[in-house]
Computed example of a mutant assay.
Amino acid sequence: MAFRGPKVWLWRWRRNPLKRGADVLEAWVVLGAWVLTLLAGVLAGLAVTWSVERELARERVEWRPVVARLAEQAPGTSDGASETVSGERVWAEVRWTMADGSAHEGQVRVPPGSTFGAPVTVWTDPQGRLVSEPATPAQARLRAALIGGLIGASAGTVPFVCGRVLRGRLERRRLDRWDTEWALLGPLWGRTTG
């Protein structure tokens, strides 16, 4: 195990006669990358979270439940016990009328063996198209937080990776300079080992 000594905070900005310009540049690159990573991640995450919450709230306001009627006998048998145990549902054609009197039809999942004309609650958007049931406020908050966190983390990786790449290039440049200086100064030392 190598001895590193005590950890010194902000060592990149302390006075040191051996510090080169490349060291100062690397310090600013590291600081800039971390600041941009945090800012990009937090700002993108919050913006997406607010946007998703606003969109889900709009859906809760605009989407409405409508009672539709089965336009056909649903496939399968109407054994209530099998539905409650397995939760099996089948696709069936339904028809409904909007408040403006326009007739619509579509397919929804219903219990097997549902009879012709049986009422089924469906959710529609303002144009009368079938949609899923809107998220509750708690579901919307959770969904928005998860999406915002994912987008925030993704947005934060861009400046982080760019900073790492730039720092790697600076490191390679520094090592190349050391090789050049060693090639010039190494022979001047002469033979130092027995």
Rank of each mutant, 00 (worst) to 15 (best):
L188R: 15
R4T: 05
E105M: 03
A138M: 12
V108F: 13
Q139R: 14
A103Q: 01
T49W: 03
R69W: 07
A99T: 10
V158T: 10
R14T: 07
P75F: 08
G101Q: 04
W11N: 13
A118D: 11
D125A: 05
G117Y: 09
A81W: 09
S132T: 12
D100R: 02
D23P: 01
A47H: 06
Q139S: 09
R58E: 10
E133M: 12
A33Q: 06
V52K: 06
S82K: 15
L188V: 10
D176Q: 13
T124L: 08
R109Q: 14
L39K: 06
A47R: 04
V85C: 00
A99I: 04
P75W: 05
S132Y: 09
D176A: 15
L70R: 07
G101V: 02
V61F: 14
V30S: 01
L142E: 05
W50L: 02
W123R: 12
E88W: 00
D176S: 12
V30L: 01
L38R: 01
A140S: 15
A33L: 03
C162D: 08
E93R: 15
R20V: 06
R177V: 02
W123F: 13
S82L: 05
V94G: 12
P75Q: 11
A44T: 11
R60N: 08
W34C: 15
G148Y: 12
G186N: 12
P119R: 08
G168H: 13
W9H: 10
N16V: 05
K19L: 07
L184Q: 13
T37F: 13
L43W: 10
W34K: 02
L175G: 06
V8W: 06
A103L: 03
A140T: 10
T49Y: 14
C162A: 14
A27I: 00
T193E: 15
K7F: 10
A92C: 12
P112K: 12
L185Y: 11
P119K: 08
A145W: 03
T49P: 01
Q107G: 01
A47T: 06
S154G: 15
P112T: 04
K7A: 06
R167P: 00
